[in-house]
Design a protein around this nucleic acid. Structure first.
Length: 381
DNA sequence: TCTGGGGTCCTAGGACCC
DNA sequence: TCTGGGGTCCTAGGACCC
């Protein structure tokens, strides 16, 4: 049976959502001028989180340092992010999409797939998508792109065609004309490294990739990824629209310092902060973690990581922090300047904690009390 | 120009067991 | 004492996504 998948993608999501909020406060529409969502312009480490289309036309790019964007475009309007507002906009956006098909997979805060196979005929897909797109614009005040295809891959590729406020199709018979001429980098899962390797083999377009021998791709990229590149370049993807919300498999937090730090006290303070954040999140979600990891980034951006498994899974900040401190001691010589420190937990479980040894219990009780107070304080904020 | 923060998945090598 | 082979778990590192 012919599947009909929509991929719905909010245009410059964080920027559009900020624009909607600002307009309700009497501002002009920042989507119509070169504008970005970013951090403090005085902080040299701020990067662009989202950019308006006029900004993008001036070659401002997402993830680019703000200082660099300001050099090419000094009149750039800079606004701060508001994550609570974004979550609200996202929920409203998803709710409207869900009213068109219950088979919905949220792919990120501003993107989702819906399976329309049982909700409309292929020849009606475009008119239904136009209606959905316009309903979101009328009710919520921001625009989306909708890509329509026989699978998730092609729907996602299609939503990336001309923006904003557009509906595009990418059916199997349109691949040669609409997808194969595109640069190989625009194919899903082809990032910077894969592009470099493909270019080195003379592969510039998706069509050229599609024409490569499967055996050669497997040879170059391994069995799994080689097969995937081959399938995707040919428009093949049989993955389902997953309606179940997957549980988190890991949590992490990291802090980039205002300048590179060498003082162990500064590093430890940052480690303490990220440990509090991560431990709070796993307690909030009723998890305990078996594995703790620490990562550092040097001034040249090279990273090093260390992880260790605990005897018992834990959600206690002090236990996580202690493990992290031990690993940081092995990872960092105490002299080399560090740019960033991070902490993660994985191997998560919902199983209740086992009784600690009687000897340890009083100390653990103290730690738990500390955590409870921290959690209460966080909820008040 | 000088690069944030939060995730997922895959691979490869070593330890250990049968 | 030395040998093969398979399975699983752990860790480190790297690629990608938004």
């Amino acid at each position: 049976m012919q599947r009909i998948i929509f991929h719905i993608d909010v245009n410059s999501a964080f920027l559009s959502w900020t624009a909607v909020k600002l307009m309700s406060e009497g501002w002009n529409d920042i989507r119509l001028v070169p504008s970005v969502v970013s951090g403090d312009p005085k902080d040299r480490r701020s990067i662009i989180t989202a950019a308006s289309i006029p900004a993008k036309k001036l070659r401002v790019k997402v993830a680019q340092p703000l200082s660099m964007a300001l050099r090419t475009c000094p009149s750039l309007v800079i606004v701060r992010g508001d994550w609570e507002w974004y979550k609200l906009c996202s929920d409203r956006f998803i709710a409207i999409c869900r009213s068109y098909s219950p088979v919905l997979q949220q792919f990120s805060i501003d993107e989702c797939f819906i399976d329309m196979s049982f909700c409309c005929k292929a020849e009606d897909a475009v008119s239904v998508a136009l209606k959905l797109k316009d309903e979101i614009k009328t009710r919520l005040g921001f625009t989306v792109n909708i890509g329509i295809g026989p699978n998730k891959l092609l729907a996602k590729m299609a939503s990336d065609f001309e923006k904003p406020d557009k509906v595009h199709t990418l059916w199997q018979h349109e691949i040669q004309e609409k997808m194969w001429p595109l640069e190989v980098r625009s194919l899903l899962w082809v990032g910077r490294k894969t592009e470099e390797r493909l270019l080195a083999h003379g592969i510039k377009t998706i069509g050229e990739l599609a024409g490569m021998e499967l055996a050669q791709l497997i040879n170059l990229f391994g069995r799994k990824f080689g097969q995937q590149l081959h399938d995707n370049a040919n428009g093949l993807d049989d993955s389902e629209v997953e309606t179940e919300i997957a549980e988190a498999k890991s949590y992490s937090a990291e802090r980039t310092f205002p300048k590179d730090y060498t003082n162990p006290k500064d590093i430890d303070r940052a480690l303490f902060k990220v440990a509090c954040i991560v431990a709070h999140r796993i307690r909030r979600d009723n998890f305990r973690a078996h594995t703790v990891s620490v990562f550092i980034k040097h001034k040249d951006f090279s990273v090093a990581q260390k992880q260790m498994s605990l005897a018992q899974p834990t959600d206690i900040t002090a236990v996580i922090l202690n493990a992290a401190r031990v690993m940081l001691g092995e990872l960092w010589d105490g002299v080399t300047p560090l740019r960033q420190v991070g902490l993660g937990v994985s191997k998560l479980t919902h199983e209740p904690a086992l009784q600690m040894s009687l000897f340890e219990e009083p100390k653990m009780e103290y730690y738990r009390k500390w955590d409870r107070q921290y959690d209460e304080q966080q909820e008040k904020l």
